[in-house]
């Protein structure tokens, strides 16, 4: 069995980030593997243990994005593929799915494509189903648990009022959420072994994508402005040992007509 895990390099939001003059995120700043991508990597690692599967981590992004692939290798992926091309900058979701589909075809496809619930930066969750549709394979998304058996994948998806048990034959795409199980922290040995694992770098020509079909020129969403959220200054801090905190709480409720 071959598993491709989609991973993304995202800015470290707590460390700060920047938008450039074209109102696009500066993707060269301090970043890391998108935290929610650790869950599909963990599922892939478990499936590899169970079935002896080959796990490939695939990313699309600038030079720095190789860091996300390296982290994925530490977390158990056998090899990495980094699609990197200046023409990609500014691509919208449709173009991103087009590029990923071409890269996956170039890799000879996979029995299972795994991805996370969303990325920390834009959190659109648009890509997985667009990618599955382009590859003409079924998509099972929002998995809170995942099992593979007899050439099929089965998941549980929790809605507010219902739990759905869903299944599809392989090949299939599955997006998993953070309820699937905590990722194992890579051992020192795993970190060392990861350094020797191969990472293949591909550009758009390698995967047969026309640069004119992607990038900012082809994007159908135009960003007019980016503004910081209104600052939330911290207010009064009281200590329940020394202050009448209940009176302060009730006064706040009354002043704001909340009771």
């Amino acid at each position: 069995m071959k598993i491709i895990v989609l991973v993304k390099y995202v800015p470290d939001i707590e460390a700060g980030y920047q938008f450039n003059s074209a109102r696009r995120l500066d993707r060269g700043g301090d970043g890391l593997l998108n935290q929610l991508d650790e869950y599909p990597l963990e599922q892939a690692r478990r499936l590899a243990e169970q079935f002896g599967a080959e796990v490939v981590a695939l990313t699309l992004g600038p030079d720095e994005a190789e860091e996300a692939v390296r982290r994925a290798l530490q977390m158990g992926a056998d090899s990495g593929v980094h699609v990197c091309d200046a023409a990609v900058e500014g691509s919208d979701a449709l173009a991103t799915a087009l590029i990923l589909a071409a890269a996956i075809r170039r890799l000879g496809g996979a029995d299972l494509i795994l991805c996370g619930a969303g990325s920390a930066d834009a959190t659109t969750s648009l890509i997985p189903v667009q990618l599955a549709a382009r590859l003409q394979i079924p998509a099972l998304t929002g998995a809170a648990s995942l099992t593979v058996q007899d050439g099929a994948v089965e998941i549980r998806r929790d809605l507010d009022a219902w739990s759905l048990q869903l299944a599809a034959p392989l090949p299939a795409l599955v997006s998993v959420n953070d309820k699937t199980g905590e990722p194992a922290y890579p051992s020192a040995k795993a970190v060392m072994l990861a350094r020797k694992k191969p990472v293949e770098s591909l550009d758009l020509a390698d995967i047969g994508v026309d640069p004119a079909a992607v990038g900012a020129g082809g994007a159908k969403v135009e960003v007019a402005s980016i503004t910081p959220a209104p600052a939330r200054a911290g207010g009064q801090i009281l200590d329940s040992e020394s202050d009448d905190v209940v009176a302060a709480f009730v006064a706040l409720l009354q002043a704001n007509a909340l009771i």
Binding site: R232, G234, I237, L238, S240, V245, V246, F249, L252
Partner: peptide
């Protein structure tokens, strides 16, 4: 008292929620 939530709280109460919350509920 170092919890990041206090940086965005309009009212921050450092204390045992098991005491503060029932007392606040009774006052309400």
């Amino acid at each position: 008292p170092e919890a990041p939530i206090f940086e965005i709280a309009d009212l921050g109460i450092v204390g045992d929620l098991g005491e503060v919350l029932p007392a606040a509920a009774a006052a309400v």
